[in-house]
Simulated assay, not measured.
Amino acid sequence: MAEARSPRRRGRTTLLIAAAAVLGVVAGTCAGYLIQADRDPTPLPSLSQLTLAQAKGDGPEPLSAAQDRRVKTDGDLRKLLVKKPSGSKKADWLGDEDGWLSLAGYAELYEDPAGAFGDQLDDNFRRVAVTGWESGDRQVTIRLIQYRQEESLVAADQASNGEYWAEKEHSTRSWAIPGTGDGKAYVHDKPDTEPGYVPVYGAEAYAWRGDVVMEIRVYDTKPLTKKTIMDLAERQMERL
């Protein structure tokens, strides 16, 4: 480890050089004033400026609905959800919902619903569009959570929060979701087990775009693969 050293002191010679420099500046300034006093005053330039020609046209064309993603996400968010595969049936846990999940219903998904409800209000929660289906023993849920984001990038924080908890699960593999920046997909190789129930394997994915967070959950009685969760995540993000 290198020995710590104090800053080098300024010596007497340095001070003398500095004093001489100051005297030189003063002398030069005085001479300048004397020379300038014998000259006629220099006229100042006019304050008027040349008139710049204005560009023709009405400005750039506005983005089309296909190019402006805000047109999509400010409309019916349910239309952006991945469609239910043929041969599968609507998830029983969605009940008679019309594709929307209330704030209270979304908060119920957390271990502390009351705390989650207040946190979501603080984060300028706007709405949740949800879909889900069952195919054999496999269950899939996809949610698009939208925030107003008046003061901060809440969507990014929410996706990061989901990733944090997913990574804390034991025996978990993860992959980056292409085209999402920091979106990630997870497969939990260790099943959840409870007495009297069959073991259940899980996979999940989180990503965000603009003011919308994507959450995907997949459960099955058989081990899940990377392809299963990545295919869902990529297809859903392509629609946002």
Score class of each variant (00 low, 15 high):
Asp122Ser: 00
Glu97Met: 11
Gly105Gln: 03
Lys222Val: 08
Asp157Gln: 14
Tyr201Arg: 01
Glu238Trp: 04
Ser86Tyr: 07
Thr221Ser: 08
Asp112Lys: 02
Pro7Asn: 11
Lys190His: 01
Ala233Arg: 03
Met230Ser: 06
Pro62Arg: 15
Thr42Gly: 01
Asn124Pro: 00
Arg209Gly: 01
Gln36Pro: 05
Asp192Pro: 04
Ala203Arg: 00
Ile216Cys: 01
Lys184Arg: 15
Thr51Gln: 13
Asp220Pro: 01
Arg126Phe: 05
Asn161Ile: 02
Leu240Gly: 03
Gln67Glu: 15
Ala19Thr: 09
Arg138Leu: 03
Ala129Val: 09
Asp92Leu: 07
Ala205Gly: 11
Asp192Gln: 08
Leu15Thr: 04
Glu194Tyr: 10
Leu232Asn: 02
Lys79Glu: 14
Gln67Ser: 15
Glu204Leu: 05
Glu61Val: 15
Arg78Trp: 07
Val154Met: 05
Glu111Thr: 11
Ala19Trp: 06
Ala156His: 07
Gly59Val: 08
Arg9Leu: 14
Lys226Glu: 05
Pro62Lys: 15
Val128Gly: 02
Glu215Leu: 10
Cys30Leu: 15
Thr193Met: 10
Ala66Asp: 15
Gly183Thr: 09
Thr141Met: 12
Gly57Asn: 12
Asp122Glu: 00
Val213Tyr: 00
Lys90Ser: 13
Gly24Lys: 06
Val26Ile: 15
Arg126Gln: 08
Pro45Ile: 09
Glu163Lys: 13
Lys222Ala: 15
Ser174Glu: 03
Trp133Asp: 11
Val130Thr: 09
Tyr33Ile: 13
Lys226Thr: 00
Asp92Lys: 15
Gly132Lys: 10
Thr73Asn: 05
Tyr201Ile: 05
Glu150Lys: 14
Pro43Phe: 05
Glu234Ser: 08
Leu80Pro: 10
Gly181Leu: 12
Arg143Tyr: 01
Thr193Asp: 04
Ala185Cys: 10
Ser102Val: 01
Arg235Asn: 09
Pro45Met: 08
Gly132Arg: 03
Pro195Ala: 11
Ala2Ser: 11
Leu50Lys: 11
Leu81Arg: 08
Gly132Phe: 02
Ala27Gly: 14
Val22Trp: 08
Met1Asp: 11
Lys89Thr: 14
Gly202Trp: 07
Ala27Met: 12
Pro199Gln: 04
Arg8Thr: 09
Ser86Gly: 05
Val22Arg: 02
Arg148Ser: 06
Gly210Thr: 03
Glu108Ser: 06
Arg143Met: 12
Arg70Ser: 15
Trp175Asn: 09
Val82His: 05
Pro85His: 01
Gly59Ala: 12
Ser6Gly: 08
Asp96Gly: 11
